[in-house]
Design a binder for these strands. Structure first.
Lengths: 112, 112
DNA sequence: CTGAGTTACGAATCTCGTAACGATC
DNA sequence: GATCGTTACGAGATTCGTAACTCAG
């Protein structure tokens, strides 16, 4: 009988945001999207870069912000800008993604 | 209309394995489970440690192996043993999880 | 009206638990 | 028969795309 106290219960309660992961871990996919947006400072462009719909990118950024409890970008008329939190996340996200690749490579090397 | 050439199409075709992510990135959740199994060399124990059902742990390990294209453990009568690939993955998985935490901390620090 | 981001909604997919098996001791 | 891992299956949650909406220029 429903023994899932870990995963949040409320789920789809507020607005639309589909928040991708929720409190368990920083999903690499979100990080990849975040970096694309950080680079282009433009959601539309980032969406093309990662082959996702604009709305998906918008959602992923919001999920990441919700997950971390902090705004990563400031939405201004002239474009998006990284906040202090976004600036702090960027280099670590890059490391994380790099390590992800290293893990794959290491396993391939070890297994043949 | 249905424009999803990226995500695999076949999906639930073989056996039961629900393979968690599939070719996009190393899911931190899988890594956490992997480390728990690597530590106890026992799926039942690992399941208790990470608060999941035995079957979920079994699936996650298989997902990870499928994702990486290599066996991480040898299932023998006496228990599970790490393969060369598993041995190679372990330290990187630990780093990955550590970095995950660092990212959170850095964002918290920057945002207040 | 155009360009950019966000919200609504729905279909396909994924996650994880219960239950049923299979194998080893 | 007890223990441990795997497979089957189903309920609920997640992901992402289309479409509609909002706001600045």
């Amino acid at each position: 009988m429903s023994n899932r106290p870990i995963a949040a219960v409320s789920s789809r309660s507020r607005s639309c945001s589909r928040r991708i992961d929720r409190g368990i871990s920083l999903h690499p996919r979100l990080l990849k999207t975040f970096l694309a947006v950080a680079r282009s400072r433009n959601i539309t462009r980032a969406a093309e870069a990662v082959h996702l719909a604009q709305s998906s990118v918008s959602d992923q950024i919001q999920s990441l912000e919700a997950e971390l409890g902090a705004a990563l970008f400031t939405r201004s008329k002239t474009g998006l800008e990284l906040t202090l939190a976004g600036l702090a996340l960027k280099p670590i996200a890059e490391d994380l993604l790099r390590l992800d690749g290293e893990a794959r490579a290491a396993v391939q090397a070890a297994a043949g």
